[in-house]
Computed example of a mutant assay.
Amino acid sequence: MPLPPHPGVGFKPDHYAQILRAPGAVRFIEVHAENYMGAGGAPHAMLDRLHADHALSVHGVGLSIGGAGPLDRDHLARLKTLLARHRPESFSEHLAWSSHGAAWLNDLLPLPYTDQTLETICTHVDQVQTALGTRMLLENPATYLTFPESTWSETDFLRQIARRTGCGLLLDVNNVFVSATNHGFDARAYLSAFPLDQVAEIHLAGHEVEALPEGPLLIDSHSRPVADPVWSLYAWAVSRTGPLPTLIEWDNDLPDWPVLRAEAGRAETILHGVSHDRAL
């Protein structure tokens, strides 16, 4: 079954007891795959308990889908074991790379959008979906530089990956706003060109602003409330897609549960408005 078209939150153990006391506050939870690749213990026990009341999304950060080299077979095997154990409703990864040979760079790094990169990523997505036996979602990145070698727009590049592999897309609206501000393009125009018909999940998060002499640099920090311009872009996007599962990401400077729940509540209000408008 797919994720429900309602808000979810990135699960942090600090909020475990409060989520259990009010399971209806959010409809799904999302975890980073790499945090649950151990053999057992409290993390898996908490995830089992939460999955009894909530849909589950597993979000990978370590496959290095965009890497030039082959996928890490051991990492993919651990991921397969994790998904077989918890049977999540969704699995997603990033349009990025994070490893080169034996070196692990612990970041989500950007790619040139070329024919060669497209072939590599499509091969990797096919391998992942075959190994896991499930359709995956691929997330658009937040970027801080671009490549003169690129011959594809990011939106067309993602469209081609989805068309060739059958994967779905995860639309991170904050990433769109961050990249648009950093590179000086129009975020609404980007969304207009995005293959919205392939989107199965949306992410929302906060960002930091670093003042530089040449202008502000936005950092996708996941450490603040969702900014008002991002909420506006989100409302515009779901008015065209209809209600979609929407995750509130908050990974750093973690707030108290009521603050995170209020962010999810704001997303629910927007989704409810879209449902109401479509019913009229």
Rank of each mutant, 00 (worst) to 15 (best):
L105R: 08
S153F: 09
P255Q: 11
H75L: 14
A180S: 14
A142S: 15
A25V: 05
L204W: 03
A131N: 11
G67C: 07
L244R: 15
A22M: 06
L254I: 13
H276P: 07
R27W: 03
P225M: 11
E268A: 15
L171W: 03
F157R: 09
P43G: 15
V31G: 07
G273E: 01
D48H: 13
S232Q: 13
D277C: 05
V259E: 12
Q127K: 06
L217D: 09
V58F: 07
V61W: 02
G101T: 06
P23A: 09
L170K: 04
I161R: 05
H51P: 05
R27L: 00
F147L: 10
L138P: 09
M136T: 07
V230H: 00
W236P: 02
S275C: 08
A264T: 12
N35R: 12
A42C: 06
W97I: 12
R188H: 06
D220W: 00
G8N: 08
A264H: 00
S153M: 12
M136A: 11
A211W: 10
F177I: 03
C122H: 09
L233W: 04
L233A: 10
E93A: 04
R87E: 15
A77V: 09
A235H: 08
D277T: 11
W152A: 15
G133D: 04
L145T: 12
E154T: 15
A45S: 10
R135G: 03
A52K: 13
T146G: 12
G10K: 01
R21W: 01
G24Q: 13
T143H: 11
G166H: 05
A22S: 14
V125K: 02
G166Y: 10
T151W: 03
F194W: 11
L132V: 09
R21N: 02
A131F: 01
L137Q: 07
G273H: 00
G215I: 02
L191V: 06
T181P: 09
F185C: 07
V31L: 07
T165V: 04
T134E: 08
M136G: 01
P5Q: 15
V26N: 08
A267V: 08
P243F: 06
M46T: 04
T120Q: 15
A55K: 13
L247W: 02
E119H: 09
Y234V: 02
A25C: 06
S179V: 05
E210N: 14
G60W: 00
S92Q: 12
D186R: 03
A33W: 04
R163L: 14
F91S: 13
A267H: 01
H6I: 02
Q198A: 14
A68M: 08
L280G: 10
A180V: 03
F28M: 03
L20M: 14
L79Q: 01
G133Q: 07
P88T: 05
L138E: 03
M1T: 11
L247P: 04
E263L: 02
Q198W: 11
D107I: 04
R87D: 15
G133H: 00
I121K: 02
I202Y: 00
L50C: 09
E34H: 04
V61M: 09
Q127V: 05
R135K: 15
Y234F: 14
V61T: 13
P43C: 14
